[in-house]
Computed example of a mutant assay.
Amino acid sequence: MTREQYILATQQNNLPRTENSQFYPVGIYGWRKRCLYFFVLLLLVTMIVNLAMTIWILKVMNFTVDGMGNLRVTKNGIRLEGISEFLLPLYVKEIYSRKDSPLVLQSDRNVTVNARNHKGQLTGQLTVGADAVEAQCKKFEVRGREDDSVLFSADEDEIIIGANRLRVTGTEGAVFEHSVETPHIRAEPSQDLRLESPTRSLTMEAPKGVHISAIAGDFKATCRKELLLQSTDGEIFLNADTIRLGNLPQGSFSPSTPGSTNPRQTVYELCVCPSGKLYLSPAEAGSTCQTSSNVCLWS
């Protein structure tokens, strides 16, 4: 209230005035008033700048009712368009790609996918690195797309390959350190099948028989020491138009008629020693096989 307003109010109320009455001005004057106007102006400018920055951020980040930028919030979850970069861990239940594009997970180092239980303990891990792909879990399975059949399964006890055909395309073939159980081994068309053990023995066993077939080629068994064909309850049957046994030794034979020699002997008799060793003996009218032959004695 100003001084004139105060005097006018006292005159209307017929209040007695004293000659020595003091008047106290009411209001903000001087430097206080200027500071107040300055702070009000500063506050107004700050509000305008803040509003402008908010509008600019909304415009740059492309905020809409459905989301922001490449991020869209749908009924089924969150949809990301284009390339998205995550600087911190991402926790999601499922990740899908669009129907017309693949899902690509890219990192400058390794890509690691972890699975944890309700206690936060690590139960499974898949790491894709520059040198190898590692999977740490109790059981690893690869299933087919159509019938959901198990194509490959691996755990601590065994490895199962459920495909109809296992193809090994390496030039060195497949190397097995221990035994292999399979009902059928076949080479590719026009390719040779080789079963080889460079430093140990090669054993083929089956409860109902072993069938070896070479329809369009030759069957060859080569070893350094002994080739053993053994049948405990049956027989060994060789069925062919020509059975040739090469490099058989020739046994000594004393002719029945002294002085008779045959410089051009072309027919021989196949003889068997008591030990089972085969040797050749010159054929005559009677058998020339002798148990005391030098081949049998030194075998």
Rank of each mutant, 00 (worst) to 15 (best):
L227A: 08
E181A: 11
R194L: 14
H178N: 10
A154Y: 04
D192K: 02
S190V: 04
E177S: 13
A174H: 10
A214T: 03
P189C: 07
Q191L: 02
F219Q: 07
F176L: 11
K220M: 07
L202E: 02
P183T: 05
A154M: 15
E205P: 01
A216C: 04
T222A: 09
S201D: 12
V210L: 13
I185E: 06
R167D: 13
T222I: 14
A216M: 09
R224C: 01
E196N: 09
C223M: 03
S201M: 03
F176Y: 14
N164C: 03
N164K: 08
E205D: 11
V175Q: 10
V180L: 15
P183C: 05
S179H: 10
I161L: 13
I160E: 09
L238I: 15
L228N: 09
E156F: 06
A214H: 02
L202F: 11
V210I: 15
S213W: 06
G173I: 01
A216P: 00
K208W: 12
A187V: 01
E196C: 08
L227Q: 07
A174D: 01
G162Q: 01
Q191I: 05
L229G: 02
S231M: 00
I159Q: 06
A206Q: 07
T203Q: 14
G217Q: 13
T182F: 09
T232D: 10
S190T: 08
S231K: 01
A206V: 04
G234C: 05
A221G: 15
G173Q: 04
N164H: 14
A187L: 02
R186T: 09
H178E: 12
G173F: 02
V175S: 09
P198V: 08
R186K: 15
L202N: 00
N164E: 08
V180N: 00
L229W: 13
L193T: 00
A206N: 02
D218G: 10
K220D: 11
I212W: 14
E235S: 15
V175R: 01
A174S: 12
T199L: 09
R194V: 04
I236C: 08
I236L: 12
D157K: 12
L229S: 05
P198W: 04
T199D: 11
R186Y: 12
G234Q: 06
K225C: 00
S231R: 00
C223E: 05
P207M: 03
S231H: 08
K208D: 09
P207D: 08
K225D: 14
K225S: 05
K208C: 09
L166E: 02
I236M: 03
S231Q: 03
A221R: 09
S197E: 10
R167F: 11
N164G: 05
H178V: 04
I185K: 13
L202G: 02
T199M: 05
G217N: 03
N239C: 03
E158F: 11
E158C: 03
A163H: 07
V180G: 08
I212P: 04
E235Q: 13
D233L: 07
T169Y: 04
L228F: 07
A187Y: 01
L195I: 03
R165D: 07
V168T: 10
G209R: 04
A206R: 00
P198I: 04
L195F: 13
V180Q: 10
I212A: 13
Q191K: 12
V168G: 04
P189H: 10
T232K: 12
T232H: 15
S197H: 11
V168S: 07
E172D: 14
H178M: 05
T182C: 13
T169G: 08
N164Q: 09
